[in-house]
């Protein structure tokens, strides 16, 4: 996988954050890429163990976790809500099962218990020496079917997760794993607790590779990246930190005559609190918000003037 960000590199070693990419602001760093707290122990084990055991295979050519859009229409997956308020889905792994997996937006990886992994042929019985928490490193699942949805070639971490074991024991029914980011990042995921169902629509999203960059990161220099936040359009506005109102917004320090900002009614001295639904709590925040906007699209700017909140509509133009 090519880990070089697609962002153009500017002069002086400055990386540019183009518009609409802010959610991935921290992504290219990949320092602890996909290291979960589950994965963290695993990572330590990998680092302290020769890579012969459990280390993911060296990637050859194509990214191993390239998005797979197997299904074209939204797939509905019902879930069971446990007494502990966790969502559980029934999944067939490589045709075996069903297994009971927790669906967890907070889990960066997909995890399968050693037992379920053996039953589904993900690992051979006694094939690898367990490490910390019975972790055996990353394996791949040929197919994982939940409801109407089948995901193929999915990376999983085989691990006997203590929390999962305790929870399964408390609830009186075993839990076989966790469905996490590596699965749901392939889809637009909708969770409806009231209807007790999820829907998945495939999207093209490139997944970073688990643990791959860790050794390099450990050895590499620890230099802060310099990122320039490039607004996506021209407003004609300058902002400064609001010394008397930290965290509330930024102070409008200048409005260019004839600019979209002036046309919208922004005035110097206004406290800009929100731009297109994003909080502008600092100058950096304001640029981050502006970086997601495009020319020609009207957006809401919320300002506080004379202690009163006002909602203004500003339509930025192409330019810089």
């Amino acid at each position: 996988m090519n880990v070089t960000p697609t962002n153009p590199r500017g002069p002086r070693g400055v990386e540019v954050v183009p518009e609409l990419s802010l959610t991935r602001l921290s992504r290219p760093r990949k320092a602890w890429g996909r290291l979960s707290w589950i994965g963290f122990g695993l990572a330590l084990a990998l680092v302290s163990t020769p890579p012969a055991v459990g280390a993911p295979p060296a990637p050859t050519g194509a990214p191993p976790a390239a998005p797979k859009a197997e299904e074209k229409k939204p797939a509905v997956v019902p879930f069971e809500l446990l007494a502990s308020n966790h969502m559980v889905v029934r999944a067939r792994v490589n045709g075996a099962g069903p297994f009971r997996l927790i669906f967890d937006l907070g889990a960066p990886i997909t995890l399968l218990s050693p037992k379920a992994s053996e039953l589904s042929g993900v690992i051979k019985k006694g094939s690898a020496r367990p490490m910390l928490f019975g972790a055996r490193g990353e394996e791949r699942v040929r197919s994982l079917k939940v409801g109407e949805l089948t995901a193929t070639d999915l990376p999983v971490v085989v691990m006997d997760h203590p929390t999962l074991r305790v929870l399964g024991g408390l609830l009186g029914r075993p839990l076989d794993g966790i469905i996490g980011f590596t699965f749901f990042a392939r889809y637009k995921t909708t969770i409806d607790y009231a209807a007790r169902e999820m829907t998945f629509e495939p999207v093209e999203f490139e997944l970073p590779d688990l643990l791959k960059d860790l050794p390099a990161r450990l050895a590499g220099p620890k230099v802060a990246r310099r990122l320039v936040l490039a607004p996506g359009a021209l407003f004609g506005l300058a902002v400064a930190e609001a010394a008397d109102n930290p965290g509330a917004g930024v102070s409008v320090s200048a409005v260019a005559p004839g600019s979209p900002a002036e046309a919208a009614g922004l005035k110097p001295g206004d406290l800009l609190t929100t731009l297109d639904g994003r909080w502008t709590t600092s100058v950096t925040d304001a640029y981050a918000a502006a970086a997601t906007l495009a020319p020609g699209h009207p957006v809401e700017a919320v300002v506080v003037r004379d202690g009163k909140e006002r909602s203004l509509t500003v339509t930025p133009v192409e330019g810089f």
């Binding site: 400055v14 602001l25 921290s26 760093r29 320092a31 602890w32 620890k222 230099v223 802060a224 990246r225 310099r226 990122l227 320039v228 936040l229 490039a230 607004p231 021209l234 004609g236 300058a238 260019a256 100058v283 950096t284 640029y287 981050a288 133009v317 192409e318 330019g319 810089f320």
Partner: peptide, 16 residues
């Protein structure tokens, strides 16, 4: 891990 340094871009004031 060091924090990213986030910097505002400069502006020339031209509409294109």
């Amino acid at each position: 891990q060091p924090e990213d340094v986030l910097l505002p871009r400069g502006s020339l004031g031209m509409e294109l």
